[in-house]
Design a protein around this nucleic acid. Structure first.
Lengths: 244, 244
DNA sequence: AAGTGGTCTAGACCACTAT
DNA sequence: TAGTGGTCTAGACCACTTG
């Protein structure tokens, strides 16, 4: 049975508005980077005052779903991944600039996922997944090793695409080729010691510390679209946080 | 020359209000855990409408400075350190419960700080600092090693206090004995390999991965009160984050 | 000039807490 | 019952962007 989220009458109006706006964004009524209806239109449409509508939008802006721009409008925000843990690997090219690593797919196969992947992607027992192995490089030197799983259902085109057609960024590819849009993600960080294969790939000593980042990427409805684990040398990694 | 932050007339009223409320909290007009003046009183006092005042308070609530409680009032929040990176060490006692490690001061001395500490605490060239070495334990087993520096000025009482009088928590001590209140902090995380002394203290192999957390603790005015570095075994450490 | 979000008003009524 | 913050209204005027 499908889960039907009916608007809870007991919730404050501005929270109901937020939920309905998320629903409409998820349904594709407004695409990423596009302006949603104006505050005046929305407050009229919902029959609430402008203040109440603004409070609903405030919540979505705080959640990173929308951004406002005075004089221009309110826009559906594409997740920027500025806060990704990756950012805290200090990748520098030989010339000293900070650069984004290029990517190369090493392997792709359709698999029956193990229990970890199945539960991360919330797959049914017999559902299959597409598994990608990827290496990311700077100046042709490998710096990150990635294992990526997506559900076969909804990502079928990826099973056939030529490996050299994947490009450096996967999420634009998911969007263009599979019509799947990543809205948010959660990441977790832990530390392990390099085994033989990671050590030789990253050219670091066996048993030296490695940062392991797991990421679950979700669409607007909260459905998992991708699960990945990324490994990189811990040397030079530094992460910062505010406490309040 | 002292920095005088005069309220910027060009800023929106609600931001000016926020700044003035922070000033009054920092000046001790309202103590932590105590209720500030009511919204009605404040909006009258500042001669702004209730909506504008509430927007200022919204900002302070979002910043973690205040908490609101319907029917009771608005309170100055004591920082909880719930988001501290420490939380992601999975400390368990022998019986399996999650516990807070106890603390023991190993050494205390008044020192001329090195450049790192001096700049973290923003000390003048000749100013001195109090240095504490502390170990934190669960079931008498050391799990964290801490090096802590505070400015001598303002923390003089700590230079004389008996070492067994420090207790497990330093911030309440700073507050009670030194009248210094920690309002916020920043932490950074990196990974290193255990040297001989850390390895034997934490009872882990030499060169195994160690999490190193640096923390700068600030008062309400943003003045650094404490700088500390904490080391613990990386095994079992896991940190999580949301991306949006 | 027209249209957008940003700021601000001066209230009203409700839900919750304390006495 | 009195007092608190929580929600909501129905506007007004301002600052900024675009044609």
């Amino acid at each position: 049975m499908a889960v039907h989220e009916s608007p809870d009458e007991r919730l404050p109006r501005y929270q109901q508005l937020r939920d309905d706006l998320i629903r409409r964004i998820g349904a594709g009524e407004w695409a990423p980077e596009q302006a949603i209806a104006t505050e005046a239109e929305l407050s009229q449409g919902y029959q609430v005052s402008i203040g109440t509508l603004r409070k609903a939008i405030d919540l979505l802006v705080a959640d990173g779903v929308l951004t406002r721009s005075q004089g221009k409008g309110t826009f559906v925000r594409r997740p920027s991944f500025d806060s990704s843990l990756f950012r805290f690997f200090r990748f520098k090219s030989r010339s000293g600039e900070v650069v984004m690593p290029s990517a190369k797919i090493l392997n792709r196969e359709v698999v029956s996922p193990d229990e970890t992947v199945r539960s991360a992607l919330r797959l049914e027992p017999r559902e299959r997944a597409i598994h990608l192995s990827r290496v990311r490089m700077i100046d042709s030197e490998p710096v990150l090793s990635e294992e990526i799983w997506v559900p076969r259902e909804g990502f079928e085109p990826l099973a056939k695409l030529e490996l050299d057609q994947f490009g450096d960024l996967l999420y634009p590819l998911y969007e263009k080729v599979c019509k799947q849009m990543v809205a948010t993600a959660t990441e977790s960080l832990e530390v392990e010691q390099a085994d033989q294969s990671i050590a030789s790939l990253l050219r670091i000593p066996v048993r030296s510390p490695v940062i392991l980042v797991h990421r679950t990427a979700l669409d607007f409805a909260g459905k998992p679209l991708e699960w990945r684990s990324t490994r990189g040398a811990a040397a030079g990694f530094q992460y910062q946080i505010e406490i309040r």
